[in-house]
Design a protein around this nucleic acid. Sequence first.
DNA 1: GTCGGCTTGTGAAAGGATTCACAAATCAAG
DNA 2: CTTGATTTGTGAATCCTTTCACAAGCCGAC
Lengths: 223, 223
Amino acid sequence: MSRRDISEFTIRRLSLYLRSLRELREAGTEVVSSRQLADGSGTTPAQVRKDLSLFGSFGKRGRGYQVRELLETLESILGLDRQWRVALVGAGKIGRALLGYADLERRGFRVAAAFDTDPEKIGTSHYGVTVRALEELEETLRAEQVEMGIIATPPAAAQDTATRLVEAGVTGILNFAPVKVDVPPEVTLRGVDVVLELEGLSFALTSDVAGGSRREPGSAAGG
Amino acid sequence: MSRRDISEFTIRRLSLYLRSLRELREAGTEVVSSRQLADGSGTTPAQVRKDLSLFGSFGKRGRGYQVRELLETLESILGLDRQWRVALVGAGKIGRALLGYADLERRGFRVAAAFDTDPEKIGTSHYGVTVRALEELEETLRAEQVEMGIIATPPAAAQDTATRLVEAGVTGILNFAPVKVDVPPEVTLRGVDVVLELEGLSFALTSDVAGGSRREPGSAAGG
DNA sequence: GTCGGCTTGTGAAAGGATTCACAAATCAAG
DNA sequence: CTTGATTTGTGAATCCTTTCACAAGCCGAC
């Protein structure tokens, strides 16, 4: 079972377990069972155990998992035992909101550079990050050893941005623009689209009986 | 096949098809094949046909689908042939970025009210929406006939907010706070968590071979 | 009108993900 | 040390999604 064979479903849940574990650590809890982790992340105990078993045996039968230990293990599995340097392209409303989102830094994602094409924005600083001209993208990303990029541009600029990020050595991209973006197969791409999520709610609320609990696979309920 | 039995996978893809169809309409294209729709949304022609077949037969063999007609059909299926009134709770960075996000209105989601607890924020206006005191939530939501809510509060306030939204008659919630939120089964909940997405990238970039094209089920690639 | 090239719609097959169910292990109490 | 109450780890079974493959239908050319 190579890391390659782990499904994204599992990875999303590992992040959710991590979230629970952080809360448990804050609360001073030392041991946790698969049932508690399941309750805290909206899944089942069997699912928790199966997910973890893909990477090893971390619990004690009849007892559960050590919170601190499992937390560190999951961080290591997810590659969070280091800092990631991220580039942000697009300093509009979403871009600036992200710059102000302290959780990124707190969780190990440092926005090392921000870019825009608008002369009005270039040179301004937001939460300690100065917006640069898009022309400087390639040079800056190589100099700053950036490995991830966030696209927060208008839709029309998204594909170009993705291409340039990849060209500059980025291998992971989070796309906030509501358009399809193509990247080479060795680059990992994820997308966030608020309208798409709302459209999902719209469908659910439109169902014949109105409302309703549907299966929620992709975006884990409660995220 | 009741609407209830349609998986969220299918619904997410319908939104993606819709995105493609809107672009095609802009471009003046009148007919589209399942192959083109698949290319435009990162899936396969068979998947497109299967998805659509769950709701009826909308195409012509040997020819394809009428762009305008299919677009209207999908909008109707998703419940987008009307306007939805949405409440926003939390006028922080994310909340205000959403208020300024014109696509919401353009796609039929009108932010009818915004709320916060911060006296500094209450009374201020952003993009035409005035921030009200949280105390007014129930009253306002009933008066404005709001059916959807967006939680953009700090994590600690998210569950309380959800409970109050539900109490005020909301049956669809989009949660931006990175905590688990519980709602009754008749309420539909979706979550967006940027850190969780970045952690997914972190895992992919940490894989033994570095980078890599993994299956991307939940968040449609390119979203 | 018919031929050839396309494309849809859909059962059947294949491929994945989740749940079940139980042996093995741990621990506390007596 | 033994018993009973827990809880993990995991093969097997179930459930769900995607892909395959092909008959049926459409269109333009001739």
